[in-house]
Protein backbone atom coordinates (compact mmCIF):
# COMPACT_ATOMS: atom_id res chain seq x y z
CA UNK A 1 0.00 0.00 0.00
CA UNK A 2 1.64 3.26 -1.04
CA UNK A 3 1.01 6.12 1.32
CA UNK A 4 2.49 8.80 -0.92
CA UNK A 5 -0.01 11.50 -1.85
CA UNK A 6 -1.10 11.02 -5.44
CA UNK A 7 -1.94 14.61 -6.41
CA UNK A 8 -2.74 13.99 -10.07
CA UNK A 9 -4.91 11.02 -9.26
CA UNK A 10 -6.77 12.99 -6.62
CA UNK A 11 -7.51 16.00 -8.78
CA UNK A 12 -8.14 14.40 -12.18
CA UNK A 13 -11.44 12.68 -11.27
CA UNK A 14 -12.95 16.12 -10.73
CA UNK A 15 -12.91 16.46 -14.51
CA UNK A 16 -16.29 14.77 -14.31
CA UNK A 17 -17.77 18.06 -13.09
CA UNK A 18 -17.32 19.54 -16.58
CA UNK A 19 -19.99 17.12 -17.78
CA UNK A 20 -22.49 18.75 -15.41
CA UNK A 21 -23.35 21.48 -17.89
CA UNK A 22 -23.65 19.32 -20.97
CA UNK A 23 -26.90 18.44 -22.61
CA UNK A 24 -28.09 15.03 -21.34
CA UNK A 25 -28.08 12.23 -23.88
CA UNK A 26 -31.14 10.49 -22.45
CA UNK A 27 -33.85 9.19 -24.75
CA UNK A 28 -37.07 9.93 -22.85
CA UNK A 29 -38.76 6.82 -24.19
CA UNK A 30 -42.53 7.06 -23.88
CA UNK A 31 -42.56 10.65 -25.15
CA UNK A 32 -39.54 10.61 -27.48
CA UNK A 33 -39.00 7.49 -29.52
CA UNK A 34 -35.66 6.53 -30.96
CA UNK A 35 -35.79 5.72 -34.61
CA UNK A 36 -35.22 2.02 -35.07
CA UNK A 37 -33.05 1.42 -38.15
CA UNK A 38 -34.42 -0.28 -41.21
CA UNK A 39 -33.82 -4.00 -41.18
CA UNK A 40 -34.31 -4.43 -37.45
CA UNK A 41 -35.79 -7.80 -36.59
CA UNK A 42 -39.15 -6.99 -35.00
CA UNK A 43 -42.66 -8.34 -35.53
CA UNK A 44 -43.55 -10.49 -38.53
CA UNK A 45 -45.41 -9.36 -41.61
CA UNK A 46 -46.79 -11.70 -44.25
CA UNK A 47 -47.89 -10.67 -47.72
CA UNK A 48 -50.95 -12.87 -48.11
CA UNK A 49 -51.12 -12.46 -51.88
CA UNK A 50 -47.67 -14.08 -52.06
CA UNK A 51 -47.80 -16.70 -49.29
CA UNK A 52 -47.97 -20.22 -50.75
CA UNK A 53 -48.53 -22.06 -47.48
CA UNK A 54 -45.47 -24.29 -47.89
CA UNK A 55 -44.61 -24.52 -44.17
CA UNK A 56 -40.88 -24.11 -44.82
CA UNK A 57 -40.88 -21.56 -42.02
CA UNK A 58 -42.48 -24.07 -39.69
CA UNK A 59 -39.89 -26.67 -40.62
CA UNK A 60 -36.85 -24.47 -40.04
CA UNK A 61 -38.05 -23.01 -36.73
CA UNK A 62 -36.17 -24.78 -33.97
CA UNK A 63 -38.45 -23.32 -31.33
CA UNK A 64 -41.64 -24.69 -32.90
CA UNK A 65 -43.01 -21.19 -32.68
CA UNK A 66 -44.93 -21.31 -35.97
CA UNK A 67 -48.39 -22.82 -36.42
CA UNK A 68 -49.98 -23.21 -39.83
CA UNK A 69 -53.62 -22.29 -39.52
CA UNK A 70 -56.30 -22.37 -42.23
CA UNK A 71 -57.07 -19.08 -43.94
CA UNK A 72 -60.64 -17.90 -44.20
CA UNK A 73 -60.52 -16.39 -47.66
CA UNK A 74 -57.97 -17.28 -50.32
CA UNK A 75 -55.95 -14.25 -51.32
CA UNK A 76 -53.39 -16.23 -53.24
CA UNK A 77 -54.75 -18.91 -55.60
CA UNK A 78 -51.34 -20.56 -55.55
CA UNK A 79 -51.62 -21.25 -51.83
CA UNK A 80 -51.75 -25.03 -52.13
CA UNK A 81 -52.49 -25.87 -48.53
CA UNK A 82 -54.79 -23.01 -47.64
CA UNK A 83 -52.76 -22.35 -44.50
CA UNK A 84 -50.76 -19.36 -43.34
CA UNK A 85 -48.26 -19.07 -40.48
CA UNK A 86 -49.09 -17.73 -37.05
CA UNK A 87 -46.26 -16.96 -34.61
CA UNK A 88 -46.14 -17.66 -30.89
CA UNK A 89 -44.14 -14.88 -29.29
CA UNK A 90 -43.72 -17.03 -26.24
CA UNK A 91 -41.31 -19.07 -28.35
CA UNK A 92 -39.90 -16.83 -31.06
CA UNK A 93 -36.26 -15.74 -30.80
CA UNK A 94 -36.25 -13.35 -33.78
CA UNK A 95 -33.51 -15.19 -35.59
CA UNK A 96 -35.24 -14.49 -38.94
CA UNK A 97 -34.41 -17.95 -40.29
CA UNK A 98 -38.08 -18.26 -41.27
CA UNK A 99 -37.82 -15.21 -43.48
CA UNK A 100 -34.58 -16.54 -45.01
CA UNK A 101 -36.17 -19.80 -46.15
CA UNK A 102 -39.46 -18.31 -47.35
CA UNK A 103 -39.60 -19.18 -51.10
CA UNK A 104 -41.74 -16.22 -52.27
CA UNK A 105 -40.21 -13.90 -49.58
CA UNK A 106 -43.66 -13.08 -48.30
CA UNK A 107 -42.75 -13.45 -44.62
CA UNK A 108 -40.73 -10.49 -43.40
CA UNK A 109 -39.85 -8.70 -40.20
CA UNK A 110 -40.77 -5.10 -39.54
CA UNK A 111 -39.09 -2.53 -37.32
CA UNK A 112 -41.83 -2.31 -34.70
CA UNK A 113 -41.01 -4.62 -31.79
CA UNK A 114 -42.39 -3.22 -28.55
CA UNK A 115 -45.16 -5.03 -26.73
CA UNK A 116 -45.93 -5.62 -23.08
CA UNK A 117 -49.05 -7.19 -21.69
CA UNK A 118 -50.30 -8.41 -18.33
CA UNK A 119 -51.92 -11.53 -19.75
CA UNK A 120 -49.53 -14.19 -20.94
CA UNK A 121 -52.12 -15.66 -23.31
CA UNK A 122 -51.91 -12.55 -25.46
CA UNK A 123 -48.70 -13.45 -27.22
CA UNK A 124 -49.99 -15.33 -30.24
CA UNK A 125 -49.41 -13.12 -33.24
CA UNK A 126 -50.97 -13.19 -36.66
CA UNK A 127 -48.52 -11.44 -39.01
CA UNK A 128 -49.81 -8.24 -40.50
CA UNK A 129 -50.60 -8.25 -44.21
CA UNK A 130 -48.29 -5.84 -45.99
Amino acid sequence: MNTKLDIKGTISPFNAITKLFEHPNTICYPSVKKEIPKGYRGFHTNTLTDCIGCANCQDVCMNEAIDMIPIEEDKNPKNSSGCIPRIDYGRCCWCSLCTDVCPPSSLKLEEDCIWANDNSNNFLYMPKDK
Partner: peptide, 10 residues
Protein backbone atom coordinates in the same frame (compact mmCIF):
# COMPACT_ATOMS: atom_id res chain seq x y z
CA UNK B 1 -8.87 10.98 -15.84
CA UNK B 2 -11.82 9.71 -13.94
CA UNK B 3 -11.17 5.99 -13.72
CA UNK B 4 -7.71 4.68 -14.60
CA UNK B 5 -5.79 7.55 -12.98
CA UNK B 6 -8.21 7.88 -10.11
CA UNK B 7 -6.24 7.60 -6.88
CA UNK B 8 -9.11 5.89 -5.09
CA UNK B 9 -9.19 3.18 -7.75
CA UNK B 10 -5.41 2.78 -7.58
Amino acid sequence: NVFFDNSSFK
